[in-house]
Amino acid sequence: MTHNPPPYPPPEQWPLLTGPDCRRCQDPAEVVRVGPTTTLTGTQVNVWHCRACLADWTIPVTHWPVLDGPNCPHCDTTVTCWAAIAPDYLGDLWLCEHGHEFVLTPEGLVIISEDGA
């Protein structure tokens, strides 16, 4: 049986446009995103901080493979996965199996990073 995952993750797992509730005090108003990092085990995570209660926590970064993603503009591989929403470019961030990143806008324009990976 062919596996046909949806092109996007479930909405409840999309990158957040607003911060999550604090896991300790449940106050969403004081939560700020510190940024991405990699744990000692190699897991990519986003770090969050609550300015109200000073709690820190991480949320894993999830990459979503699709069968019909765009080809990589760097190496032309067809093995790509959706990584996140790219709000700076109003498009979607994609990764290829070789680690190249690129953005695909709703108009179909491909924006590549300066260094190519």
Rank of each mutant, 00 (worst) to 15 (best):
T2F: 15
T2K: 04
T2C: 00
T2M: 03
H3V: 05
N4Y: 13
N4I: 08
N4R: 03
P5K: 02
P5S: 05
P5E: 03
P6L: 04
P6C: 03
P7M: 01
P7E: 06
P9S: 01
P10F: 06
P10L: 02
P10V: 02
P10E: 04
E12S: 06
Q13A: 06
W14M: 01
W14Q: 02
P15G: 09
L16M: 07
L16A: 05
L16N: 04
L16P: 02
L17K: 11
G19H: 09
G19T: 05
P20D: 02
P20G: 03
D21Y: 15
D21Q: 10
D21P: 04
C22G: 08
C22F: 12
R24N: 04
C25P: 01
C25T: 06
Q26G: 00
Q26M: 10
D27Q: 10
D27H: 12
P28Q: 12
P28L: 01
E30P: 00
V31P: 00
V32L: 13
V32E: 13
V32S: 13
R33H: 08
R33N: 09
R33V: 05
R33E: 11
R33M: 09
G35R: 05
P36G: 07
P36I: 00
P36A: 15
P36L: 04
T37M: 15
T38D: 04
L40K: 11
T41E: 15
T43I: 11
T43L: 13
Q44C: 03
V45T: 04
N46S: 04
V47T: 09
V47C: 05
W48Y: 15
W48H: 08
R51A: 12
R51K: 12
A52V: 00
A52Y: 12
A52Q: 10
C53A: 05
C53Y: 12
L54H: 14
L54P: 00
L54W: 13
A55M: 07
D56S: 10
T58F: 03
I59K: 03
P60T: 07
P60V: 01
V61S: 10
T62Q: 11
T62P: 00
P65N: 08
V66K: 03
V66M: 10
L67G: 13
D68P: 00
D68T: 14
G69D: 03
G69A: 06
P70I: 10
P70R: 12
P70L: 13
N71K: 14
N71F: 06
N71L: 06
H74Q: 10
C75Q: 08
D76Q: 14
D76I: 04
T78D: 13
A83I: 02
A84K: 04
A84S: 15
I85F: 07
A86S: 14
A86D: 14
P87T: 08
Y89R: 11
L90A: 14
L90W: 01
L90K: 09
D92F: 00
L93Y: 02
L93M: 11
W94M: 06
L95T: 10
L95F: 13
E97V: 13
H98A: 14
H98S: 14
G99Y: 08
H100K: 04
F102M: 03
V103S: 08
V103P: 01
T105Y: 00
E107L: 06
L109R: 15
L109W: 01
V110H: 12
V110L: 15
I111Y: 15
I112H: 08
S113Y: 09
E114V: 10
E114R: 10
E114W: 02
D115M: 08
G116D: 06
G116I: 02
